[in-house]
Design a protein around this nucleic acid. Sequence first.
DNA 1: TACTACCTAACAATCATTGTTGGCTAGGCC
DNA 2: GGCCTAGCCAACAATGATTGTTAGGTAGTA
Lengths: 171, 171
Amino acid sequence: MRPPAEMTQLFRNLGLKVTPQRELIFEILWGADDDPAASHPAAGHPTADAVFAEARQRMPMISLRTVYQTLNDLAYMGELHHLDLGTGSSRYDPNTEVHHHLVCTSCGKVRDVFADYSAIRVPGGAASGFQVGAAEVVFRGLCDDCQTRLNGSPPVPPALVSPTNQPKGEY
Amino acid sequence: MRPPAEMTQLFRNLGLKVTPQRELIFEILWGADDDPAASHPAAGHPTADAVFAEARQRMPMISLRTVYQTLNDLAYMGELHHLDLGTGSSRYDPNTEVHHHLVCTSCGKVRDVFADYSAIRVPGGAASGFQVGAAEVVFRGLCDDCQTRLNGSPPVPPALVSPTNQPKGEY
DNA sequence: TACTACCTAACAATCATTGTTGGCTAGGCC
DNA sequence: GGCCTAGCCAACAATGATTGTTAGGTAGTA
């Protein structure tokens, strides 16, 4: 993703309108890109909802629909990457260089991994018929916060024969 | 995933009941595992809905809820792997050996990739604080069917300044 | 055979995301 | 500066995947 001023220009050049909503979203995404470890909601690899949360702080009437639409447009333009890392909702990555991800299995936090895995290939024959692109590598683990938060307790079994979670049996 | 007879025994040993619904799901999953290229709905890496579709052919009153519950229980027990490959819905993989996937970006079809990528590591420092597990590698591409189906036409832009898709402007 | 914990079907609810629509506005034109 | 119009937006509804709830049914045991 390019800086807000360039995005504004790009939109104008494409015949798209530069609205206050779009400008705000440009700034939020630029801040996310700039500041991957910050504490604001849209830090790092924000979900649509995180961008929305931050946007409505400055523009309370903005709609979630508009946020989704703008994020999708940016993704289609290649200014954002759309990520589905199995955390329940889509994330948008303002960093469009080739890179990979480290995902917290507990809270969904995402960290960038810059490494050259271009040597990774599908072993011969396994891809027959398929027209294959690049490999995506995802590392899963527990972030520091979740390690301390879950400290001592087991990996929190989601249930199944668990009397505390499901008093009447897991089903 | 083990064969249905073993699953039955395992459930009994755990104090779980062996119901006709569960037995049917065991068989369907075993068939999926057995027969990754077959044409029945639950072949390969079925979604909950695919398992449901196949189940109700033999047991029309079975509920989707029961299918979901059983799949989740099996995943929790480690007999299935739960996959989120960004295809919109969760898939369940009866093959629990370490392996990777090749995903069709158009139809969501999944093919197994057996290769040893255990050498893939997060570069030094990038994982600091994180407790990291193994790498998951996902290859994305177009399956043979989708290559012929989309033959000639471009990669189907989802819209944006596309008069045919969005007569009133893309927004 | 009876009992009880466990399961199930039906139904409602939730969450993320997208479709629709009527009114509003950015930006080009005069 | 005012007009015009394509594009945009907020509001609302709808969708699809998944999970919560509950009342009744049944597997497995005594």
